[in-house]
Design a protein around this nucleic acid. Sequence first.
DNA 1: ATATAAACGAGACGGTACGTCCCGTCTTTCG
DNA 2: CGAAAGACGGGACGTACCGTCTCGTTTATAT
Lengths: 202, 202, 202, 202
Amino acid sequence: MPKKNKDQAPAKRGRPRSEATRLAILKAAREILDEAGPMRVTVEAVAARAGVGKPTIYRYWSNAQELSMTALMEGAPEGASDPATGEVGAIEALTAQVASVVQRFASRRGRQAALLMATAEADSELAKAFRNRVILSSRNEGKVYLKRAIEEGDLRGDVAIETALDLIYGPIFYRMLAGHAPLNEAFANEIVALALEGMKAR
Amino acid sequence: MPKKNKDQAPAKRGRPRSEATRLAILKAAREILDEAGPMRVTVEAVAARAGVGKPTIYRYWSNAQELSMTALMEGAPEGASDPATGEVGAIEALTAQVASVVQRFASRRGRQAALLMATAEADSELAKAFRNRVILSSRNEGKVYLKRAIEEGDLRGDVAIETALDLIYGPIFYRMLAGHAPLNEAFANEIVALALEGMKAR
Amino acid sequence: MPKKNKDQAPAKRGRPRSEATRLAILKAAREILDEAGPMRVTVEAVAARAGVGKPTIYRYWSNAQELSMTALMEGAPEGASDPATGEVGAIEALTAQVASVVQRFASRRGRQAALLMATAEADSELAKAFRNRVILSSRNEGKVYLKRAIEEGDLRGDVAIETALDLIYGPIFYRMLAGHAPLNEAFANEIVALALEGMKAR
Amino acid sequence: MPKKNKDQAPAKRGRPRSEATRLAILKAAREILDEAGPMRVTVEAVAARAGVGKPTIYRYWSNAQELSMTALMEGAPEGASDPATGEVGAIEALTAQVASVVQRFASRRGRQAALLMATAEADSELAKAFRNRVILSSRNEGKVYLKRAIEEGDLRGDVAIETALDLIYGPIFYRMLAGHAPLNEAFANEIVALALEGMKAR
DNA sequence: ATATAAACGAGACGGTACGTCCCGTCTTTCG
DNA sequence: CGAAAGACGGGACGTACCGTCTCGTTTATAT
């Protein structure tokens, strides 16, 4: 049996890519992001800071924006903030989660993420991953709570869950984008309360 | 009394700015926006296309982004789509308006506007104007409908109007940003129905 | 008469090019040439040293090689080493000139010039100018001496002047290229003597 | 007796270098030289074309220039165009040889060889070999003819042979470098005739 | 009518960053 | 264990725009 990998691995040749290098690049990108903002995350600056050649960066990402997206994704582990201990009611848990999302997106990092999302070319693979990880993961979490609230009889069973989710999470990004009102915990409570008002089981 | 303007006007001398030039610049910017997207709206390209010197553009705007915002604002007269003729119920009118807003932001121009808003420096005067004109004008329109619906007894009087408005208009930008579901008329109907469900007068 | 320039000047528009900038670039190029050799005359290094943007250099020259050629041409005024005072015989004057040419091309600058000539694209306008100024100017000077020598009866009148000139100046570049023997004053004397041996009027 | 080489060879271990590989590299280099010129003979391009790793090339040559020199040397077997059959006079034979040299250096390959020679670092071993093989071999051939011409009494015995050789072969490279006049057979005849004019035995 | 002065087109300028090519070295896996 | 493959740090390329700065040329007032 001369072959080691049974037709599953593509048999990589040549020097393998260095994970350490990749991490150094992401670290540098994250530092610049924090210190100087997204406009300064240029391939040139990141390469210089990471002690890396520009071509190495281009080997992994096709431009500074994609690099930024990866940096933001891998930098913030995106929590999955405690999947609700069951002790507490589903709607209360949802409210708490929305509050934490609001808080996250009220921060600089949150704004950067949204900006990046808005700027990105929508169809790239990385953009989709970023969207799922950064923008939609909270929405998916929320879906679990809503379903549980229905199971537990707190919400009516005929609720249009998808629309309800947009009602709950949409306003967060709206305020972030338009800035017409503050992003704080009170806001989180108001949204959830009002959005679910009409869905309550009587 | 040698002065004509009684110490209020600063007595303009020299050649006045040419409105035709300003319009040519905006026209060129809009064309590039349509043909090649917001990334290509560079001061250089606009100047070349408008047959204008770069300093002339900088005399009016401080960078390409501000120019784009003006172009977008003056290009789309922003409708103010018939302020509801009173014949029709306030909630129906609101639903129709939301549908038209959804349609507008489903277009390329709409996406460009939102992107520009996201990218803009939040504190500039022009950015505020842009925000009011492009992002918040629809919300303000909506507020009128909501108030009328309360007056007409369709909605309860103790409704938190501001939150309700965010509930209605937020999801539009959310879907535009995240792209997880389509922006169409059905969506408009669903949002309004669900958002107001809990505010209905019983 | 509204026009100032009577159809002779091409009516320059825009900010004129700064001669000071051009000279600073050439100075920097010459310095690098001296200190580090022709390989180090990169557009980037010259721009940095001259305190000039790269595009400014590309506005004048299309690559580092052309820049080097200009630097070498304008740097060494190419002497026209005293056009022979008439007091001395034409052949003696020629010998002295050849000796000075040998000396010049024995230097680093000389080698650089020849190398540049060899590397240059032959058909460019600048390459032709460089060839005339740096490589062929000495040959043209020599032609004057040969003619005078014929007039003065030192050489026969039926001599093939062009071939004779190649016989005299060719060996200089040959030795420089092949390096099989030294470039010194003795060599200059030998060449001229032997080359003209067969042309002496009897 | 397990060893093949009887203790005189340095006991080669491991996979021996493949001569086929070496030839493939040289072939690829020669092809690029022909098709795209000397500037395009980069180690990278040659490796790709020859289907060879870059380190393999660096194992044989220290840079692309040396590779080019070898390619040019081994590509053109350098003729040694008929070592004079004795039937014909030495001066006639010399004239014929000079004509063939002129023809060779009038070609693209000739120009490339001279360019390479000019660019090369003079002190490298390979550069010396190249110079001897490509630039000076014709001169050495010529020396034989000159000596024979003296022996045969066609030329005077007190001739400075080295200078005479430079007089004959120098103009070829001069014209190639400066391009002020064509390189053709007539030129070859003229040079030899004029150069030897003064050395003829009377 | 004639100065005066700002706006204008043109485009050069010092810069920053782009994305690409190639260098020469290194680190794997394959034959 | 040599050779292919190819990643790596690095340097330079030539280009696109940036925002600023002269230029010479209109074009309206204000004298």
